[in-house]
């Protein structure tokens, strides 16, 4: 098989293969750090002692996929309707709708909780554009 204008075509092919296989060589030599979430803050441990198990406002699976929507709804509810009470669909328990005084009360370890997945997925939520980042002690960073 003779190629006409072979040089140009081969350059084009190399560019194509280079782009098409980009993900396969880009990650070579990079550590595949999977997110590791820590849910052993003092507040969570105290909750576990009191109620016998770790639980969030909703089930783990629900929180995993819907937490952003939940937080958005909370914001609307608090800011627009002045309603700060959330009743859990799973346990029926009442919770205070608040990021800093609710979520972050238990999950005081933002770096080892929120940031783990967000950094992994390269997601940058704009929560802390307005809210104050929790102060984390050195021992939590590790």
């Amino acid at each position: 098989m003779k190629l006409y204008d072979g040089g140009k075509i081969l350059i084009g092919l190399m560019v194509f293969v280079g782009i098409a296989t980009f993900p396969f060589y880009y990650n070579i030599g990079k550590v595949n750090a999977k997110p590791e979430l820590k849910t052993d803050t003092p507040a969570i441990q105290a909750w576990e002692k009191q109620y016998g198990k770790k639980e969030c406002v909703e089930s783990k699976e629900y929180m995993r996929s819907e937490h952003m929507q939940l937080l958005n709804n909370w914001r609307d509810s608090v800011v627009r309707d002045m309603n700060r009470q959330y009743v859990s669909m799973t346990s029926g328990r009442k919770f205070n709708m608040s990021l800093q005084n609710g979520c972050l009360e238990c999950h005081s370890n933002k770096k080892q909780f929120c940031d783990q997945c967000h950094n992994y997925m390269a997601v940058k939520p704009y929560c802390f554009d307005c809210h104050i980042q929790p102060m984390e002690k050195e021992e939590n960073k590790s």
Partner: peptide
């Protein structure tokens, strides 16, 4: 692409 390239 090679097939196309082989036609003069």
């Amino acid at each position: 692409i090679l097939k196309w390239g082989s036609s003069p």
